[in-house]
Lab assay of single mutants.
Amino acid sequence: YTAFGDLEVFLHGLGLEHMTDLLKERDITLRHLLTMREDEFTKNGITSKDQQKILAALKELQ
């Protein structure tokens, strides 16, 4: 049995499950992801397509 964390649930909701391992390897938490700047997305290997999905979701949360 494995409990999913906030990061996994957030990514799954956006259809971005493939990013879970990448972000965990880089010790990026959901809190960090929510406050990242555009250059940090790129530096951490997050594609512009995935970045757009994340940023759109963040706008909806605000």
Rank of each mutant, 00 (worst) to 15 (best):
L61C: 12
E60A: 12
I46V: 06
T47R: 09
T2F: 08
E17K: 05
G45F: 00
L22Y: 13
I28K: 01
R26A: 04
G45T: 03
Q52M: 08
L58C: 11
D27F: 01
L23Y: 03
L55Q: 14
H32S: 12
I46N: 02
R26I: 00
T29F: 01
L58F: 08
G15F: 00
Q52P: 06
Y1T: 10
V9S: 15
D27T: 03
K43G: 05
L22D: 12
T42K: 13
K59R: 12
I28V: 07
D50C: 02
H18F: 05
Q52G: 11
K59F: 07
E8D: 12
K53H: 03
G45R: 04
S48M: 11
T29D: 09
G13Y: 05
G13F: 03
F4D: 15
Q52W: 06
F4H: 13
L55T: 13
L58S: 15
D27Q: 12
R26F: 00
H18L: 04
F4R: 13
I28T: 02
L11Q: 00
T35D: 11
Q52L: 08
L16W: 01
L23M: 09
T29K: 07
A56L: 10
M36F: 07
T47A: 11
K59Y: 09
D27L: 01
H12S: 15
D27N: 14
L30H: 03
K49T: 13
I28H: 01
T35Y: 09
L30W: 08
L55H: 07
L11H: 00
L33Y: 00
I54T: 05
E17G: 15
I54M: 12
L55M: 12
A56M: 11
L23G: 02
K24D: 03
D39I: 05
E60S: 12
L16T: 01
T20Y: 15
K53V: 11
A56E: 10
L58R: 15
S48Q: 12
L58W: 09
L58E: 13
L58V: 14
R26Q: 09
Q52Y: 08
T29M: 02
F10S: 06
G15W: 01
I54W: 03
G5C: 10
I46L: 04
R37V: 05
L7D: 02
N44T: 10
M19D: 01
Q51K: 13
L33H: 00
L16Y: 00
H18R: 05
L33F: 07
Y1C: 14
T42G: 09
E8G: 08
H18Q: 05
Q52H: 10
M19N: 05
F41H: 02
H12Y: 12
L58I: 13
Q62C: 10
A3S: 14
G5S: 13
G5I: 05
L30Q: 02
M19K: 07
L55W: 07
T42I: 09
G13I: 03
E40R: 00
S48K: 15
L14M: 07
L22W: 09
I46E: 02
A57D: 05
S48N: 12
Q51A: 14
H12Q: 15
M36V: 00
T29P: 04
G13D: 13
L14R: 07
M19P: 03
E38D: 11
R26W: 00
Y1M: 13
G45W: 00
E17D: 07
D27H: 11
T29S: 08
L61H: 15
I46W: 04
L7A: 03
L61G: 15
M19Y: 15
Q51M: 09
I46F: 14
K53I: 05
L7S: 03
K24Q: 07
L34P: 03
E17R: 08
M36P: 00
K43V: 08
S48H: 07
F4N: 12
M36Q: 01
L7N: 00
T47G: 12
G13E: 12
E38M: 05
T20D: 03
H32F: 01
I46D: 01
L11F: 06
F10K: 04
I54E: 06
H32V: 07
I46T: 02
A57S: 13
R26E: 05
T2K: 13
D50P: 01
L11D: 00
L22R: 14
H18D: 10
N44W: 11
R37D: 13
G15I: 00
G15R: 04
N44Q: 11
I54A: 04
I54P: 05
G13L: 03
T47P: 13
R26K: 13
L30R: 02
T42L: 10
L7Q: 04
L16S: 01
L33S: 01
L7F: 01
G45M: 03
M19W: 04
H32G: 09
L11A: 03
V9R: 15
K49C: 11
D27Y: 01
D6F: 00
M36H: 00
L16E: 01
D6R: 06
T47E: 14
T47K: 09
T2M: 07
H18G: 07
K49V: 10
S48T: 12
K43S: 08
V9G: 13
L22P: 09
D50S: 04
M36A: 01
G15N: 07
L58K: 15
E17F: 04
E60H: 12
K49W: 02
I28C: 02
Q51R: 12
G45C: 05
F41T: 02
F4V: 12
L14V: 14
L34D: 02
E38G: 08
F4T: 14
I54F: 04
E40F: 03
R37L: 05
R26C: 01
G13A: 08
F41I: 06
I28D: 04
A56Q: 11
A56Y: 13
M36N: 00
G15A: 04
Q52D: 08
L61S: 15
K49L: 07
L33I: 06
A3R: 14
T2S: 11
Q62F: 08
L23T: 03
E8L: 02
R31K: 13
L23C: 11
L23N: 02
Q52T: 10
R26S: 06
K43P: 04
L30K: 07
A56W: 07
D21L: 07
Q62V: 04
L14D: 01
G15H: 06
L14K: 08
K43E: 10
L16A: 04
D6S: 09
K24P: 02
H18I: 00
K24W: 07
E60K: 15
T47H: 10
N44L: 15
I54S: 05
F4Q: 15
L58P: 14
N44D: 06
L33E: 00
K49M: 10
H32N: 11
T42D: 10
L11K: 00
